[in-house]
Amino acid sequence: MAETSTPERVSGTWALEARGLGKRYRRGWALRDCSFRLPAGRICGLVGPNGAGKSTLLGLATRQVEPTEGELRVFGVPVGDSAVMPRFAFLGQDKPLFKRFTVAETLRLGRELNPGWDAAAAERIVRSGDIPAHARIGTLSGGQRTRVAFALAFGKRPDLLLLDEPMSDLDPLARDEMGTLLMAEAVERGTTVMMSSHMLAELEDMCDYLLVVSQGRVRMAGDADALVPAHTLVTGVTRDGSLPSALDGHTVIENRVQGRQFQAMVRPGGPLSADWQVSEPSLEEVLLAYLRSPDAPALYTPGARVEAEGTQAA
């Protein structure tokens, strides 16, 4: 699953491909100049503070939001083309369902509105949660409702599953159950997943790809396995109360000066000075450093970056 992506692959193998994507609302840009690629088959975490543009991005990918500029392709098909509709499934933050429908009717909705409906899979997911088919959605618990929403999403047999904070309103037990279900179904079918979440632990467990957005811009995109090792946490002695010039050759994401000591999150541009203490940061430390430093240069691992127009790999 975690095969290394190479830019040479055909565009169909990109589950999502954004080029200069932007969305402006009346109050300003929610997302701007957003370019990245998500290879097929990956589980991608979409990370960022509130209002960073995560929901806007998911809205653009699910045709709920019209882009102001740029383009977004789902498996090579422009998202404005209705042919992409059977390819993705979406689970919104509040998982809307018809409250007066029964569980069976909710699954029938999936069958009636989707050409490739997989009734067996949807029923299996519902059954394994011990949810009676004739129960009305309005009478179910939050965890059960989420399970039905998952069944609806997986019954669509999507190639790309988009989730907007799917677990945020669940208790720890239900969250664990849904997480397991999500991973099992996604891995079994090779579904590409993009999920936004605030829970870094959740992301660390599930995701092998990361897309970090902040203030409407992409801050980091690529393999989780490659993003973290690209960074080093450096501790050393300051020169005259400021950062030593030896750091100039490296990309400093974030730094903190305390008395005669400094600590910096850097992307090493070469060998680091032997005077410094170095350690490998955790995913959480890297993410927080990027989110706290909006001016630091964005980081893409190979393949995640979309080159200038026309150089799309054939």
């Binding site: 045709r63 709920q64 509709m85």
Partner: peptide, 15 residues
Amino acid sequence: EQGTAQLVTTQSVTR
């Protein structure tokens, strides 16, 4: 209001 517009239009039918 109830979000079911989103539910239906993220199935395979257009708005």
